[in-house]
Simulated scan of single mutants.
Amino acid sequence: MTFLSTFTLPDEDAEWDFFIKQKSRAYSTYYPFQIFPQKQVPTLTFEPITIFYGDNGSGKSTLLNVIAEKLGLARGTLYNRSSFEADYLTLCNFELAAPIPDGSAIISSDEVFDAMLNTRALNQQIDRRRDDMFDDYLDNKFASFHYHDLSDYDELKKILETRSKTQSRYVRDNLAKNAREFSNGESALQFFQDKLQDQRLYLLDEPENSLSPANQQKLAAYLTDRARFFGNQFVIATHSPFLLALPHTKIYDLDKVPVASARWQELPEVQTYAQFFTAHAAEFKKESPHD
C-alpha cells in the first residue's frame, strides 16, 4: 500500500527568497534551512518501502522529521523544533496516493529505547513485589486468625488461599507476568509487533538500534511481511545492511550529490562489510576432519 507518493523540498532559490525577506541576521543557524540544497535532492518518490541511506550527519533523520512534521504524523517522543521549522515546512510540498490513516506515526530509536527502559523498570518493580509476596505468603499461612464478621472476609480469604497453595503457586497466581522473558533485543522486536497497526504509514528512524544482527534480520522479515500483507508503508532512515537488503525497496543515497536512488549492493557501507568478509572468507571454511 502506498499513501505518500511524492515529497519535494525547497530548492536553493526558494531558500534564498526566504533569507532575503529576513530582517534579522542575529541567528547563527536557520535549521533545517541550508542542509539540503547542496545535496540537490530531487522530488522524492515513494514505494511501499523506501529507505534513506547515509553516513552520520548526512541528514537522513532530519529529512525523516521534516516529512513527519509536514504530514502531521504522531510521534511518541519529544522533538526539538527549531525557530524556522514552520517557515521551512511551508516551502515543502507532497502528493498522496491515498489519504494518510489516523494512527500513522514516526517512530524514533529513542522511543524504542524508552520502551526497553520501561520494561526494565517493570522487571525491577515485579522483582520487588515478588519478594514482598513471599513474605506475605508466609505471614498469612502461619497466622493465628479468628474470624469475627464480614469485615474480616478479605483477610480470611487470603489466609485460606495461602494454606491451599504452595508458595510458588501463590506468587504465580497473584503476580503480573515477568517481562524479563524478553532480552533487550527481543523487547525491541516486541515493541514493533505491539506498535505497528495494519494499513498505516510509518516513518522509522534507525529502527535497528539496540538489535543484534540476528534480530535485525527478524525485524527486516517482519517489516517485509507488514508491507506485503498488511497494507503498511514504511519510510526508513538506516544504514543497516539487513534493512537495506529488503526486497523491492527504493533506496535514496544521501551521501551522493545529487541525491539519487541506488542498489543496496552499491552502497559504501555494504561494500565495507562485503570486503571485510571476503578478505576473511578462508577463516569461515570448515576444516577438514583430517587436518
Rank of each mutant, 00 (worst) to 15 (best):
M1C: 10
P10Q: 04
A14H: 05
W16P: 01
D17Y: 03
S24T: 15
R25I: 14
S28G: 02
T29I: 08
Y30M: 01
Y30G: 00
Q34R: 14
I35F: 10
Q38V: 14
Q40G: 00
T45W: 02
F46I: 02
I49D: 04
I51D: 03
G54E: 04
L63Y: 08
K70R: 15
R75D: 02
Y79V: 13
S83K: 05
Y88T: 09
N93A: 14
L96R: 05
P99S: 04
P99Y: 01
P101A: 08
D102P: 00
S104N: 03
S108P: 03
D110C: 00
V112P: 08
M116V: 15
N118C: 04
T119S: 11
A121T: 10
A121G: 00
L122N: 13
Q125F: 01
R128G: 00
D131A: 12
D135C: 01
L138P: 00
L138R: 15
D139W: 01
F142R: 13
H146L: 07
S151C: 06
L160R: 13
T166A: 05
D173H: 08
S187H: 02
K195R: 15
Q199N: 14
Y202M: 06
L203M: 09
E206T: 09
P213N: 06
Q216S: 10
Q217H: 07
Y222E: 04
A227E: 04
F230C: 06
V235C: 06
T238P: 01
H239A: 04
P241N: 02
P241M: 05
L243E: 03
L244S: 05
L246Y: 15
P247W: 14
I251Q: 04
Y252N: 03
P268G: 03
P268A: 03
T272M: 09
F276L: 09
H280N: 13
E283D: 12
H290C: 03
D291W: 08
